[in-house]
Each structure stands twice: as C-alpha cells, then as structure tokens.
C-alpha cells in the first residue's frame, strides 16, 4: 500500500515538473497511435462501406474474417510485421524495423479490422430501404455512398474511438517492431513494461496515469461530439 501511495505522489511530481523524458514518450505515443488510427480510417471506412453495400460471392466469409480480425492479438501482429520487415523479409529492403514507422504499420494492422468491422455494422444498421431511397432521389453511386456514410456518422465515431483505444493501449506489437529504444521508439506502454520490470514503480505509475488520461481525453472529446449530434 505504501508503495502505491508513494508511487502516486512521485508520479504526480514527474507529471507536474514536466519531466522531459516522460513528455517525449507521451508525445511519441500520441503521434504513433494517431497516425495509425488515421491510416486505419483511410483503409477501414472505405473497405467497410464496400463490404456493407456490395454483393459478391464470399462476402459473408470476408466479413467474418474482418470480425475475427477485430480481436487480433497484438503480439501475433507484432510477430508477422517483424517477419515482413526483417532484413531478409519481403519488406526488409524498406529498413524500417525498430522505427516509429514500423510501429505505425503494426498498429494500423491492429486498428484496421476494428474500424472496418464497426463500419460494416454501422452501415448495415441503417434502415434497409434507405439505400434505395437515396437512389430513388437520383443519387449517383458516389453520392449514395457519401450520404450513407454521413447518415452513419455517429456510430462511425465509435469506430474511431475503438480503433484509437485499441492501439494506444497496445504493447505487444509496439515492443516487437519498435524495440523500446530510448528517445526513438519508446512509448507509454513499452516504457511502463520496462519500468515495472526494473522496479521503478513510481515512473510506471506516472506513465500509466498519463496513458489513461490520454485515452480518456480522446474518447471524451469524441463522445461529446457524438452526443451533441444526438437529439435529446
């Protein structure tokens, strides 16, 4: 108990004293996870819309693959991304293993199925005849997609939240493809693992607090947007 209280106090000091290393780690975490979420939105939303609106053989199979991917274990992603980026791997020539770019790639692989899956569900949750109504109003294919995505914007915000939440808190893939290199690829989660291992509980607690505050702030912001739109 004493350890815990002491840890919290020291953590508080680290945070308010603007400890340079803690802040660098926090910023990098945000940068990597935001980029990864952005990449996953660019891929996941169009893919989800396509899966929800199109009709091709094997569509259900693909959707169940995506849904399984929503629970992809980060360590498995880390392993495969590492294998691909390894010196002799298919993408080894890029020489990005143990860089933030590799971490963005791994986190995007984790977040994309989440964003895709929620997008499919959001679009499919619209009234069955809405697509026909949009077409009946004279919409082209692009206009139809745009209007349906706009109609699903509130549940789609949940996709953003879930995607970001999934990658900011993920540690397995980041440590494997990033390597937790100080000043280069050390992020909040990997640093927490390391500090806990070293017995520096105060630093670990400080990092965890920041992590939770970050996750909360981003989700709070998105929730405010989502609820403001919702009629009371």
């Amino acid at each position: 108990m004493e350890l815990f209280v002491e840890g919290i106090l020291k953590a508080w000091n680290l945070i308010v004293s603007l400890d340079a290393e803690v802040y660098a780690v926090t910023l990098l975490s945000l940068k990597i996870s935001c980029s990864a979420t952005l990449v996953s939105l660019f891929i996941g939303i169009p893919a989800g819309v396509f899966l929800a609106l199109s009709d091709f053989p094997g569509r259900r199979f693909v959707i169940s693959l995506v849904n399984t991917g929503m629970g992809l274990p980060p360590v498995v992603v880390g392993l495969f991304v590492t294998l691909f980026l390894w010196r002799n791997g298919p993408l080894g020539f890029l020489e990005i293993l143990y860089t933030p770019t590799a971490m963005i790639l791994a986190q995007a692989v984790i977040a994309t199925p989440i964003v895709t899956g929620i997008t499919v569900a959001s679009i499919q949750n619209l009234p069955a005849n809405l697509k026909l109504q949009v077409q009946a109003l004279g919409a082209t294919r692009l206009q139809t997609v745009w209007i349906l995505v706009r109609e699903a914007r509130l549940p789609l915000l949940a996709a953003v939240m879930a995607g970001f939440g999934g990658v900011i808190s993920e540690v397995g893939a980041s440590i494997m493809v990033g390597g937790n290199i100080k000043g280069q690829t050390r992020v909040l989660t990997t640093a927490t693992v390391m500090e806990t291992g070293k017995g520096n509980f105060d630093v670990a607690i400080a990092l965890s607090l920041i992590l939770m505050v970050l996750a909360f702030s981003v989700n709070y912001l998105l929730t405010v947007i989502q609820q403001r739109e919702r009629p009371r």
């Binding site: 809405l130 026909l132 109504q133 009946a136 109003l137 209007i147 509130l154 739109e229």
Partner: peptide, 12 residues
C-alpha cells in the same frame, strides 16, 4: 422519377 416509401426514411 420520385418514390415515397412506407416509412418516411428521413435523413438525420
């Protein structure tokens, strides 16, 4: 053409 469905199907 224009079509009106059984449900209003209004946009948000």
């Amino acid at each position: 053409l224009a079509m009106v469905f059984q449900e209003p199907l209004l946009f948000d």
